[in-house]
Amino acid sequence: MATLKELSKREELLAGGHRLCAGCGASIVVRQILLAAGRNVVVSCATGCLEVSTSIYPYTSWRVPFIHSAFENSAATVCGVEAMYQSLKRRGKLPVDEEIKFIAFGGDGGTYDIGLQSLSGGLERGHDFLYVCYDNGAYMNTGIQRSSSTPLGADTTTSPVGKVIPGKQQYRKDLTDIVEAHHIPYLAQASPHNWKDLTHKVEKALSIKGPKFLNVIAPCHRGWRAGVNQTIELARLAVETCFWPLYEVEDGKLTINYKPREKKPIIEWIKLQGRFSHLLKPENEHILRRLQEGIDAKWESLLRREGEK
């Protein structure tokens, strides 16, 4: 496990000069992942904030080979790259001593929603790649529309708080569970505030052959309507409230990587975000309660599963 000092001596593989928002969570996630991965990686990326802001022609922030092809196919695209790697390697057309890893990035829109099929296909076929979902809980690039990752009650531009309907009506989809059903060798949830956990998970994932998956919370202060400097704080609180549990499943064995000494109530996280401000009103208390119930149920189930022998 690398220390920060060790990591700081590695090459910065995401160049400055990208045009993600000030305080963007996604770029923090990507920087940490690339620091852990090193330069022998090829990256694919779904259409979204990360892609449009890091590769505006004629500029690119990527110091590793990078391909964006469309929105719903980051996984399928990287699978193609990986297939070519396997083929050329077998045919002796690539240096034998050079091992390349493959990472696909997608936001929650490009992963939970439009890219789910492509992800599922890539995982099932067993390609050797790591898929990273940077989850900010809405379609931020197109202007904060609800996705199936948007939390219950959140105010987005397509689940607005109106006179009749108070924000998103559904629980978020549990993508990590869906991925787990593919029985891949490694999957985990991570958060950029815990850089040690995240970089360790990347290193571990890349040391394993076959499909791997990381779901990483990537706060978006624009969409969440919070302070531009609160990105890391929001990620930390998401973990402290168990909204975003840090856990991993390795060969079917579940480990919770962090258990808060005192699990904070979700309101601690909610009250920092404008997208949930209506939940603080007495008439919406039931939504807040439902949200807390959902989080509690998931956390309990993780604890139970971890305890299973």
């Binding site: 160049a15 400055g16 000030a22 505006i56 022609y57 500029y59 110091r63 590793v64």
Partner: peptide, 16 residues
């Protein structure tokens, strides 16, 4: 784009 990481030439400091 054949020049890796050339966004380093694009300055975003002016956003501050």
């Amino acid at each position: 784009i054949v020049e890796a990481g050339n966004s380093a030439r694009y300055e975003t400091g002016g956003w501050r």
